[in-house]
């Protein structure tokens, strides 16, 4: 094939991929709106539709990721355009796995759908999707392991966060008796009736924490091979350490009687914010404060 023919083929494949990606983003959006309707009406059928909708979206999203893998002849986690898509996929797929163990609880799905939709839209509207060859610093098996571990941990934290928010929204005893019983009825309406569901926040963080540990470890191993220095206190590295320590604090509070409840919930939410900072906010912070960073590849 001539270079012109190769380029036309690439353009065609990319436009097909973009159409599919927009469709996936739209479907996440529809799931999110269905979830909002469920939240307002508490009709169980809407909850079930939300979960089914997410299943369909995740299947389409899997096809999209496979398509891009074939298109680029490599797993797609090199640029922020690609990792945002992974992030949305991992989060939704992890949610669906967890949901299959709760059966009748559907509410956290609307938060996960909202986050996945936002990630897809950010990717589509702000990043360049053109497939570029892999630059030398990224050509390391450690890099691939690092990205997979990081996104697995992020996905698990997203689901833990969404469960925590649902529980906090409907599970906190507020001042008067009347308010408490209202909360209680709401929880019943959404199937959030026992501590069993709430325990998932802890279980998920317990799962995400080793993944995050491995993500930091593999990142350090990669840096050790690429630059000979496993740790440079680069803003992204430091933020990953902040996220790691915040979740470590969360796990400790879960073993301390009086801190188990509200303080732990607050820490879980702070952990989620730190995770988003590590993933996306650091790039913004680096630009804002004009800090030199070695982690500019994935931008």
């Amino acid at each position: 094939m001539t270079p012109e023919q190769l380029l036309s083929r690439d353009a065609l494949l990319l436009s097909l991929e973009l159409k599919l990606f927009w469709l996936v983003a739209l479907l996440y959006g529809i799931c999110f709106i269905t979830g909002l309707a469920y939240l307002l009406s508490s009709k169980e059928s809407l909850g079930r539709t939300l979960t089914r909708g997410l299943w369909i979206t995740v299947i389409l999203h899997t096809i999209l990721i496979l398509f891009r893998t074939v298109e680029g002849m490599r797993p797609p986690f090199q640029t922020l355009y690609e990792t945002l898509s992974w992030f949305a996929w991992f989060a939704s797929a992890t949610y669906l796995y967890a949901q299959s163990r709760w059966k009748n609880v559907h509410l956290p799905g609307f938060i996960v759908a909202g986050i996945s939709m936002a990630a897809c839209l950010y990717s589509l509207l702000s990043r360049d999707p053109v497939i570029a060859p892999v630059p030398p610093p990224l050509q390391s098996p450690w890099y691939e392991v690092h990205v997979i571990a990081a996104f697995l941990s992020y996905a698990v934290f997203v689901v833990s966060f969404s469960v925590e928010v649902c529980y906090l929204g409907f599970g906190i005893k507020k001042g008067s008796e009347a308010a408490w019983s209202l909360q209680h009825n709401n929880r019943r309406a959404f199937g959030i009736i026992d501590e069993h569901f709430r325990r998932w926040t802890h279980r998920l963080v317990l799962l995400g924490f080793p993944f995050l540990t491995f993500a930091i470890f593999s990142g350090a191993a990669w840096a050790n091979d690429a630059w000979g220095r496993y740790w440079s206190w680069d803003p992204k590295e430091t933020w990953s350490l902040i996220t790691w320590t915040v979740y470590a604090i969360y796990l400790h509070t879960k073993t301390i009687g009086r801190w188990k409840d509200r303080p732990a919930s607050v820490l879980n939410i702070i952990g989620f914010i730190c995770m988003i900072m590590t993933f996306l906010g650091v790039n913004w912070l680096v630009k804002l404060l004009d800090i030199p960073s070695m982690h500019t590849y994935a931008v």
Binding site: A11, F21, W22
Partner: peptide, 11 residues
């Protein structure tokens, strides 16, 4: 581009 109203072109 996403909704098919525009075509992608080689640079």
């Amino acid at each position: 581009l996403g909704v098919g109203l525009k075509k992608l072109e080689p640079s």
